[in-house]
Nucleic acid binder design. Structure first.
Lengths: 172, 172
DNA sequence: AATATGTGATTGCAAATTGCAACTGGTTGC
DNA sequence: GCAACCAGTTGCAATTTGCAATCACATATT
């Protein structure tokens, strides 16, 4: 962290922040999964992150200004992690990573549906999602009263695919 | 490489391919720097990659189908590395990484100018660049006869900034 | 009051990865 | 013939990763 940067290239500097196998997955789970607590991130991780790695990355993301940490009033030991604007603006990168991975790699159908919807929705949908994240994480004033949130829409699509898959397995 | 994937999430699968500190930098140097040979990638690396890491990553990128390797007719020991369509389609991600890094991190001016121009040009400019990369790396038919290539334009802008910086240092 | 469970981590340790520096075996240019 | 160039490889120390157990404390259950 204290070391000098390898270069002043913006791509390199970005990779110095989140160029590893876990950091973006933690942010993905906060953005798309709505995770706010250590335990949620730990036990509901699709990839099975271990607690030492999670703790280390959360500290790093905190140092880098990607997230903030506040006390949960409901429980003295509970911490609430929030995204900063800096992290919220990674959403377009997440969307592109999802599209690229869906196209070129063997992504599972149920975990690809979100990427597909984000790709179809394009930048306007990303902006709507980012606006919702600003309300949720930064306390921005809410002015989108009507309809389900983008996360809810994505989540519902995911569950629909899972339900259909269960039907197909049963019917086969 | 042979291990099972951690999950079928397209973002995770993408990170399993290039979620490290070097892979995207090598592809960046091929895309924006026009590097095609091992030695070029090694000695003209802004970040100073070491030869064992470079060799390892080139092999991995080869295995993953991100690049191909052919003999250079001019020299029996020279290899030419080419981007595949899979890698060329990372350009939008590179552009976003550059924009994000330029906005949120302490990127140097001369290495940010390319990111700025790519951001201003938007998806149409990315598509033009990708078309040029397909001509250069995939042997696609060239049908853009007029004007400088996108890489040339970006390179010229970089050199202009460097020249101006030298003037300012001299004049200060 | 005692016990179980939930909380965000930390610790110990083995394995894997990284990164520096030197080196290899071969090709080409002078 | 000899220096320079080519794509790597090798040895080794330092760092990072990842699993499993554990910690100190807070709250819920009985």
């Amino acid at each position: 962290m204290n070391d000098a940067h390898r270069s002043g290239c913006p791509i390199n500097l970005s990779l110095e922040v989140f160029g590893d196998k876990w950091s973006l997955l933690i942010l993905r789970d906060m953005i798309f999964g709505g995770r706010r607590h250590f335990r949620e991130l730990l036990t509901r991780s699709e990839e099975g992150i271990s607690s030492n790695i999670l703790a280390d990355r959360l500290k790093m993301l905190l140092d880098e200004g990607m997230i903030t940490k506040t006390d949960d009033p409901s429980h003295k030991q509970k911490a609430i992690y929030s995204l900063t604007e800096k992290a919220i603006e990674l959403l377009p990168i997440m969307a592109h990573l999802g599209s690229w991975g869906r196209k070129w790699l063997a992504a599972s159908e149920e975990l690809s549906i979100r990427a597909q919807l984000l790709e179809e929705g394009g930048p306007p949908l990303w902006e709507k999602f980012m606006a919702e994240l600003r309300v949720e994480h930064l306390g921005a004033p809410a002015n989108d009263p009507a309809g389900p949130s983008v996360r809810e829409t994505l989540q519902a699509a995911y569950e629909e695919v899972v339900a259909r898959q269960a039907m197909e397995r049963a019917g086969a």
